[in-house]
Design a protein around this nucleic acid. Structure first.
Lengths: 342, 342
DNA sequence: CTGTTAGCGCATTCAG
DNA sequence: CTGAATGCGCTAACAG
């Protein structure tokens, strides 16, 4: 294989020093317009591209960032990742998009590995690592943007979705529709901001004098939602509505209802969370609290890049839009055919 | 922020030279057992981790690889990515998992960007860039493993799924079930190995004396499959079965049939390709030609790492398993309730 | 405006 | 078995 062309090759071909080439390509420092033009000409001819690793050695800036999520196969996260990547690419960054398997040990390993690899910062969705672990890591690292979790640390910034509000929106709707026995599926892990969506939901039930006991903890996946549904109806066969921690659980729940001979929405209304693309294409389509995932990714990246440039000075808190999308899974009296793709 | 500890810090603390530390951590070169033990002790105490960027400068090996796919939000690819990443992590590599948007320009940009970033190799799912473009890139780069596409070039290795066979399996089944008017949804782009799944399917139809004209080209997405279905039935309302390029199109097709008042499978049988996790959870569940995605990712990575270690000597061709998964979308006489999660 | 020197953190020569 | 020099490709700090 041909060796990649270096700054030295360009310098030689242009008859100048390496430094001058560096100045030309980085567009800084004074340099005469025509030598610059001449150099850029050579750069183009030789197809030179600066070696980022070498650049990173001096500048301590690698133009790499990490994105760690618990489950890369949950469609929510790839949609977030698109937002992160599009933002990153337009600022000339590359993104390590990593899967932690929702496992504390893997999370820490990934953090350490990315740090050793030299990333300039990390966007982290973490449920498992403890505050202490994350703080210890942050001590020796650079900016981290933590999503849906708050840790007080100079290197850790936070981006929170108003999950409690989302839960309340869903609860208000189901109660207004007349449901009195309502089930909730929560992520099996808690103690983080994210599960506020379920506690927000639950608070509304309690305020309305309804039972708030029908909670099942399970994996936030298709299978988790499926099994939680079986369990729920074993415990309480009279439930007529379910609110799920995310859409994957909601879809699993629809499928389970189908297999259990309970019709959705006639017998059971279901509302999910996230509004992944699939929610509107499922059959019946799934009502859901929409999170603007692409925007969420873009915002997280924006916060991170800002912190990289301005250590210790995070942007003012962002607001991620939420919207209750009502579809067939909560709709009884309208015709299914009226629902198009959205 | 505390500065990350370097090899020099360890050397000083252990009272030896940097070289000796280097030897200790890399476990090569002769070094006495007890000085090594002493050094490793200090390494642990200080929490030292070698800086990969610096290592890469000398060794020309960054322990980073790229994975470029056309659509990160198609669940097929995250499942492949898991295989790639799990393989990579166990060999101490990090993976840039990138989305090309199925756009030639983006593909090339990503390739160039990853190359500048210093990756040791790239796994590429590409439909858009031309052979010429890819060859030109490969000329100045390192190993590439191309999936489902063949290009003769010393730096380009190939991993092919036997798509033609998969198509044939699906066709055999539908014909045996008595279908005579069968639609096919193909990826809008062609000329690559991957679309052989549809041509394999088509060949069987022709050999059986059936019409092979009901082909629609569309985006390989939910919406693409949805719209293709509308178009297909406009053109030929008598079609009783559809084979789709991938599962996303298949699910879009089921949903479209539902909205068009055609029952699946009673009026229309549907078979997809890939067997993404969702296929078995959709309602009705989608029959599909299963590709072992995780294994595919692992194999691709294995081929790539082998090529990184042994330039120019690819492994013998691999065989990715295929299996026809029959579910509700092609099943008329069995009870839906009989289908559990699989 | 341009060239020279130095060094980022590490591994690969070599001496000792 | 260990230490001292040299350089990976590039940029920052100086010279000139």
């Amino acid at each position: 294989m041909k060796q990649r062309v270096t700054i030295g090759d360009v310098a030689k071909a242009a008859g100048v020093s390496k430094q001058t080439v560096s100045r030309a390509i980085n567009d800084k420092g004074e340099i005469s317009a025509d030598t610059k033009e001449r150099i850029m000409q050579v750069v183009r001819e030789l197809g030179y591209r600066p070696n980022r690793l070498a650049q990173a050695m001096n500048t301590q800036k690698s133009f790499m960032v990490g994105l760690i999520v618990p489950d890369i196969t949950n469609p929510f996260f790839p949609e977030v990742a698109r937002g992160v990547q599009d933002g990153a690419y337009s600022s000339d960054y590359n993104v390590f998009f990593c899967n932690s398997d929702d496992d504390a040990k893997v999370e820490i390993n990934l953090l350490e590995s990315l740090a050793a690899q030299g990333v300039d910062g990390i966007i982290l969705f973490s449920h498992q690592a403890t505050d202490t672990q994350l703080k210890a890591f942050a001590d020796t690292f650079r900016p981290i943007v933590l999503v849906n979790r708050t840790i007080a640390h100079p290197n850790i910034d936070t981006l929170i979705v108003n999950n409690m509000l989302g839960g309340e929106m869903a609860a208000d709707h189901l109660i207004a529709a007349g449901h009195t026995e309502i089930g909730m599926f929560n992520n099996r892990d808690f103690s983080v901001d994210e599960i506020r969506r379920v506690s927000g939901f639950r608070d509304v039930l309690i305020d309305s004098g309804l039972s708030a006991e029908n909670i099942i903890n399970a994996e936030p996946t298709l299978v988790g939602g499926y099994q939680a549904t079986e369990k729920l109806f074993e415990q309480n066969p009279t439930v007529s509505a379910i609110f799920t921690y995310n859409d994957m659980m909601g879809i699993g729940a629809i499928r389970a209802c189908h297999d259990l001979g309970r019709r959705v929405p006639e017998d059971v209304a279901i509302i999910g969370f996230d509004d992944i693309h699939l929610a509107s294409m499922y059959s019946p389509s799934l009502s859901s609290v929409r999170v603007d995932k692409y925007e969420l990714g873009k915002l997280a990246l924006r916060r991170l890049l800002h912190l990289i440039e301005n250590p210790g000075n995070p942007l003012p808190p962002d607001n991620v839009k939420l919207e209750l999308m009502l579809r067939e899974s909560t709709r009884v009296h309208e015709l299914a055919a009226a629902t198009a793709i959205d």
